[in-house]
Design a protein around this nucleic acid. Structure first.
Length: 555
RNA sequence: UGCCCGAUAGUAUAAUGGUAGUACGACAGAUUUUGGUUCUGUUUGUCUAGGUUCGAAUCCUGGUCGGGCAACCA
């Protein structure tokens, strides 16, 4: 299918460039995160794009950390970013850092000063803002704009030496204070920050702004196609201006629309807030849209790559339905995940016609979608745990489960007919009684007989216990960022439901963290890293499609 | 009321001057020892007004709507 897919606009540009011999047909991209947070699903789109494009056209991709702001950055983030990219299935050609280029960037700045294209400004941040003008009014020149080259050189050198406190001076590009593009109104190139950098330590007391580091870093690395998101479109003329004044390798920037997903937020600031304010437990809390969280939730790398492929690459703003991501993981897990039976909310089923103390080993196929997955034995007995929701005292017409007089098949076992039930003092059903049809045993002669419903079960005598964590969407509204008010007020109060005591088939006690299963009729689950043989813990990746729930909702 | 980007079914995404197609969703049916899967069918779309052309989603002009830009953030 992917072979037949038409080209997105970036692939078209790349193919044209190759056809025209631009850069000798060489393709070199880069993924440039700032190490100030964990990567999220939107970054995954960008990673798949940058690495995918290079891979498709025989090129390379650099991983470059744009670490120009030491106060927000940390090696914890560097490590997580590398882990997430590797997990997604991509290898970078070079691991690089903008901070590797600090000396070179300083040299570029000196060159611009010498050419009269940069100056040291002593104005405060407020003064600079005041003279910047507005989108509809031109800015005014700073009183420091006409300093001599010699003075600028001396001052800039002193800034580097640490002679001035934070905020005392900045280095600015001398472009055009009347430009209709705000980014061209003498943007700041360097600011003074006496801050410890995670890689360069205390070597620098000035740090380049992103706008002075990014384009030149691409140029230094000879990046042919510098791909970023839409909000950097107005920065492009500035990057081109620097490249032209410096006469260095002309990387070209192309912009695509970032990914937006329903029922979540994607801004790093908001995600950081969720973590810091303990609204979620961590960056990899399975409700987060981070790559680490999707990994912990049980998503596969390939499902995320497929998703990135399906959402496409374009320049128009978009809001992707969470349902598409869920489709991608269901589609894959349906083919690969072994089926097991787990009872979340148990009531007892007693088969009165079944001999006391007898058990049988039933054949259970592991995956009907995969003949090579084999089968296992599940122990059947007189008393079973079944799901509370699989019995109704007063069942409606199309309820194909248990109720007095109704028949269901116990998966892999017998057809049973419900004969009665018991309630406790509070009126809750505790036990259901049934008789079985011996000749209906799965695999036996009479097993061809059919009933409308099939339910899952585990033997009360053999079942083990586990914790099951049911995750749901983090927000109650499609676009929390687009609503009025605090996004934290739109948190889904039911985004996590923990079942302390679910009954599992004994085989599940051997699950290793990361093992994925389909809990029959329930959904896809993965063993969490909190899981131990004594206390297995499973996270719900995604529910099964549930047309019955829809039916109930309609009624 | 400056500059920039964009507008195709509910959501995405194709068609690059020549039959508006695909996926997800929704709806209906078949199959089913998972109300899962699978299969079949149905539904819904070119923002608007002009222009160019034999022919326009596509090219041109005006309008409308949406988004971005005024951090010593990236």
């Amino acid at each position: 299918m992917s072979e037949e897919r038409s080209l997105n606009f970036l692939e078209q540009i790349v193919e044209e460039d190759i056809a025209n011999g631009v850069n000798g047909g060489r393709i070199h991209t880069r993924f440039p995160p700032e190490p100030n947070g964990y990567l999220h699903i939107g970054h995954a789109k960008s990673i798949c794009l940058n690495f995918g494009l290079a891979k498709k056209y025989g090129g390379q991709t650099n991983l470059r950390f744009d670490d120009t702001n030491p106060v927000t950055e940390d090696t914890e983030y560097v490590d997580s970013i590398k882990e997430d990219i590797k997990w997604l299935g991509f290898d970078w050609a070079n691991e690089l850092y903008a901070s590797d280029y600090f000396e070179q960037l300083y040299g570029f700045a000196v060159q611009l000063i010498e050419k009269g294209f940069a100056y040291v400004d002593d104005s405060t941040a407020a003064e600079i803002a005041a003279l910047k003008g507005t989108p509809t009014e031109p800015g005014k020149d700073s009183p420091y704009r006409s300093r001599s080259v010699e003075e600028n050189l001396r001052l800039f050198s002193e800034m580097r030496e640490g002679k001035y406190p934070d905020g005392a001076k900045v280095l600015r590009a001398k472009v055009d204070m009347a430009s209709p593009n705000m980014h061209m109104r003498d943007p700041i190139m360097y600011r003074i920050k006496h801050a410890h950098h995670h890689r360069t330590g205390d070597a620098w007391s000035i740090y380049p702004m992103y706008d002075f580091a990014h384009g030149q870093s691409d140029s230094i690395e000879q990046i042919t196609h510098s791909i970023c998101t839409l909000e950097f479109i107005p920065h492009r003329p500035l990057y081109d201006w620097f490249i032209q004044q410096l006469d260095i390798f002309p990387s070209h920037q192309y912009e695509f629309a970032r990914l937006n997903l329903t029922y979540t937020v994607m801004s790093k600031r908001k995600l950081l807030q969720l973590v810091n304010e303990n609204i979620v437990t961590s960056w990899d809390d399975p409700r987060m849209p981070t790559i680490a969280a999707f990994r912990r939730r049980g998503y596969t790398p390939s499902s995320i790559r497929t998703f990135a492929e399906r959402v496409g690459i374009q320049k128009r703003d978009n809001m992707i339905e969470l349902g598409l991501l869920e489709f991608c993981i269901r589609e894959e897990l349906n083919k690969s995940a072994n089926r097991v039976m787990v009872v979340h909310d148990p009531i007892k089923l007693v088969i009165t016609s079944y001999p006391d103390g007898q058990t049988e080993e039933m054949d259970a196929e592991n995956n009907p979608e995969d003949a090579t997955a084999g089968s296992r034995k599940v122990t059947f007995g007189k008393t079973l745990w079944i799901e509370r929701e699989d019995f109704m005292e007063n069942p409606p017409k199309k309820f194909f489960r248990l109720g007095v007089g109704l028949k269901v098949r116990l998966k892999y076992a017998y057809i049973v007919e419900c004969t009665g039930f018991e309630k406790d003092a509070d009126g809750n059903v505790t036990t259901v009684f049934a008789t079985h049809i011996p000749e209906s045993k799965s695999g036996a002669e009479g097993s061809a007989m059919t009933v409308k419903g099939t339910i899952h079960w585990v033997s009360t005598e053999h079942a083990k216990e586990a914790e099951v964590r049911l995750y749901d969407r983090l927000f109650t509204v499609e676009n929390p960022a687009g609503e009025e008010g605090d996004f934290k007020d739109m948190i889904n109060p039911n985004s996590l439901e923990i079942i302390q005591k679910a009954y599992i088939e004994p085989v599940l006690a051997d699950a290793k963290p990361g093992d994925r299963y389909q809990f029959l009729r329930k959904g896809y689950f993965v063993a969490d890293y909190d899981s131990t043989p004594e206390r297995p813990v499973f996270n719900r990746t995604v529910t099964l499609k549930d047309t019955w729930a829809k039916e109930v909702k309609k009624a």
